[in-house]
Protein backbone atom coordinates (compact mmCIF):
# COMPACT_ATOMS: atom_id res chain seq x y z
CA UNK A 1 0.00 0.00 0.00
CA UNK A 2 1.33 3.34 -0.97
CA UNK A 3 2.26 5.58 1.96
CA UNK A 4 0.28 8.81 2.42
CA UNK A 5 3.57 10.55 2.72
CA UNK A 6 5.03 12.01 -0.44
CA UNK A 7 8.12 10.17 -1.59
CA UNK A 8 11.18 12.22 -2.23
CA UNK A 9 14.30 10.80 -3.82
CA UNK A 10 17.40 12.81 -2.98
CA UNK A 11 20.33 12.14 -5.30
CA UNK A 12 23.59 13.74 -4.17
CA UNK A 13 27.09 12.31 -3.94
CA UNK A 14 27.50 14.00 -0.56
CA UNK A 15 26.06 11.64 2.07
CA UNK A 16 25.87 14.37 4.73
CA UNK A 17 23.67 16.50 2.49
CA UNK A 18 21.25 13.69 1.73
CA UNK A 19 21.19 12.77 5.40
CA UNK A 20 20.35 16.34 6.51
CA UNK A 21 17.60 16.61 3.91
CA UNK A 22 16.16 13.29 5.01
CA UNK A 23 16.18 14.30 8.68
CA UNK A 24 14.58 17.69 8.07
CA UNK A 25 11.99 16.57 5.55
CA UNK A 26 10.92 13.44 7.38
CA UNK A 27 10.64 15.42 10.60
CA UNK A 28 7.63 17.16 9.06
CA UNK A 29 5.90 13.76 8.82
CA UNK A 30 4.83 14.67 5.31
CA UNK A 31 7.64 13.12 3.36
CA UNK A 32 9.42 9.85 3.02
CA UNK A 33 12.90 10.40 1.82
CA UNK A 34 15.21 7.96 0.08
CA UNK A 35 18.83 8.88 -0.26
CA UNK A 36 21.04 7.89 -3.15
CA UNK A 37 24.71 8.91 -3.14
CA UNK A 38 25.85 6.97 -6.17
CA UNK A 39 24.63 8.58 -9.38
CA UNK A 40 25.13 5.33 -11.29
CA UNK A 41 22.54 3.62 -9.07
CA UNK A 42 20.14 6.56 -9.05
CA UNK A 43 17.97 5.50 -12.01
CA UNK A 44 17.44 2.03 -10.61
CA UNK A 45 16.73 3.46 -7.19
CA UNK A 46 14.17 5.84 -8.66
CA UNK A 47 12.42 3.14 -10.68
CA UNK A 48 12.24 1.00 -7.60
CA UNK A 49 11.21 3.79 -5.16
CA UNK A 50 8.69 5.51 -7.42
CA UNK A 51 9.25 8.98 -5.95
CA UNK A 52 6.74 11.83 -6.19
CA UNK A 53 9.64 14.25 -6.69
CA UNK A 54 13.35 13.95 -7.25
CA UNK A 55 15.84 16.39 -5.68
CA UNK A 56 18.88 16.08 -7.90
CA UNK A 57 22.43 17.38 -7.42
CA UNK A 58 24.07 18.67 -10.61
CA UNK A 59 27.80 18.14 -10.21
CA UNK A 60 28.45 14.54 -9.30
CA UNK A 61 31.09 11.97 -10.12
CA UNK A 62 29.96 9.23 -12.49
CA UNK A 63 26.83 10.56 -14.14
CA UNK A 64 26.11 14.26 -13.67
CA UNK A 65 22.71 15.68 -12.77
CA UNK A 66 21.89 16.87 -16.26
CA UNK A 67 22.42 13.44 -17.77
CA UNK A 68 20.51 11.78 -14.95
CA UNK A 69 17.57 14.15 -15.47
CA UNK A 70 17.40 13.04 -19.11
CA UNK A 71 17.43 9.41 -18.11
CA UNK A 72 14.69 9.97 -15.50
CA UNK A 73 12.61 11.76 -18.10
CA UNK A 74 13.11 8.91 -20.52
CA UNK A 75 12.02 6.26 -18.04
CA UNK A 76 8.36 5.24 -18.52
CA UNK A 77 8.21 4.38 -14.84
CA UNK A 78 9.12 7.90 -13.84
CA UNK A 79 6.89 9.71 -16.26
CA UNK A 80 5.59 12.99 -14.86
CA UNK A 81 7.80 12.91 -11.78
CA UNK A 82 8.99 16.47 -11.10
CA UNK A 83 12.73 16.96 -10.87
CA UNK A 84 14.21 19.85 -8.88
CA UNK A 85 17.91 20.48 -9.23
CA UNK A 86 19.86 21.18 -6.07
CA UNK A 87 23.06 22.82 -7.17
CA UNK A 88 26.15 24.43 -5.68
CA UNK A 89 27.12 25.72 -9.12
CA UNK A 90 24.78 28.72 -9.09
CA UNK A 91 23.95 31.59 -6.80
CA UNK A 92 20.58 32.56 -5.45
CA UNK A 93 20.68 35.62 -7.68
CA UNK A 94 21.20 33.44 -10.70
CA UNK A 95 18.33 31.26 -9.63
CA UNK A 96 16.00 34.24 -9.52
CA UNK A 97 17.63 35.75 -12.62
CA UNK A 98 16.89 32.61 -14.64
CA UNK A 99 13.36 32.23 -13.31
CA UNK A 100 14.51 29.41 -11.08
CA UNK A 101 15.09 26.97 -13.93
CA UNK A 102 18.05 25.20 -15.50
CA UNK A 103 17.47 23.60 -18.85
CA UNK A 104 13.76 24.05 -18.32
CA UNK A 105 13.83 22.43 -14.89
CA UNK A 106 13.44 24.23 -11.55
CA UNK A 107 16.40 24.39 -9.22
CA UNK A 108 17.46 25.34 -5.69
CA UNK A 109 20.84 26.90 -5.08
CA UNK A 110 22.93 25.52 -2.28
CA UNK A 111 23.04 26.39 0.53
CA UNK A 112 19.28 26.28 0.83
CA UNK A 113 17.44 26.15 4.18
CA UNK A 114 14.70 23.74 5.09
CA UNK A 115 11.95 26.34 4.75
CA UNK A 116 12.86 27.03 1.15
CA UNK A 117 13.03 23.31 0.31
CA UNK A 118 9.62 22.74 1.88
CA UNK A 119 8.19 25.72 -0.01
CA UNK A 120 9.52 24.25 -3.23
CA UNK A 121 8.13 20.77 -2.48
CA UNK A 122 4.73 22.27 -1.70
CA UNK A 123 4.83 24.16 -4.97
CA UNK A 124 5.27 20.99 -7.03
CA UNK A 125 3.45 18.49 -4.86
CA UNK A 126 0.71 20.61 -3.35
Amino acid sequence: MKSQKKRILVVDDQADITRMLKLNLEQTDQYEVRMENDSRLALAAAEEFHPDLILLDVVMPGIDGGELASRFAASPELEGVPIVFLTAAATKEEVSGRGGRIGGLPFLAKPVNTTEVLRCLKKYLG
Binding site: I17, L23, A88, P111, N113, T114
Partner: peptide, 21 residues
Protein backbone atom coordinates in the same frame (compact mmCIF):
# COMPACT_ATOMS: atom_id res chain seq x y z
CA UNK B 1 32.39 27.49 -4.83
CA UNK B 2 31.04 24.01 -5.29
CA UNK B 3 33.26 22.57 -2.60
CA UNK B 4 32.31 25.29 -0.12
CA UNK B 5 28.59 25.37 -0.83
CA UNK B 6 28.07 21.68 -0.18
CA UNK B 7 29.41 21.81 3.40
CA UNK B 8 27.42 25.04 3.90
CA UNK B 9 24.35 23.12 2.79
CA UNK B 10 25.03 20.43 5.37
CA UNK B 11 25.63 22.95 8.16
CA UNK B 12 22.52 24.96 7.28
CA UNK B 13 20.25 21.94 7.27
CA UNK B 14 21.98 20.56 10.35
CA UNK B 15 21.23 23.82 12.14
CA UNK B 16 17.62 23.68 10.92
CA UNK B 17 17.28 20.17 12.27
CA UNK B 18 18.79 20.99 15.64
CA UNK B 19 16.64 24.12 15.95
CA UNK B 20 13.45 22.21 15.21
CA UNK B 21 14.03 19.84 18.09
Amino acid sequence: AHEVKNPLQTILMGVDYLASG
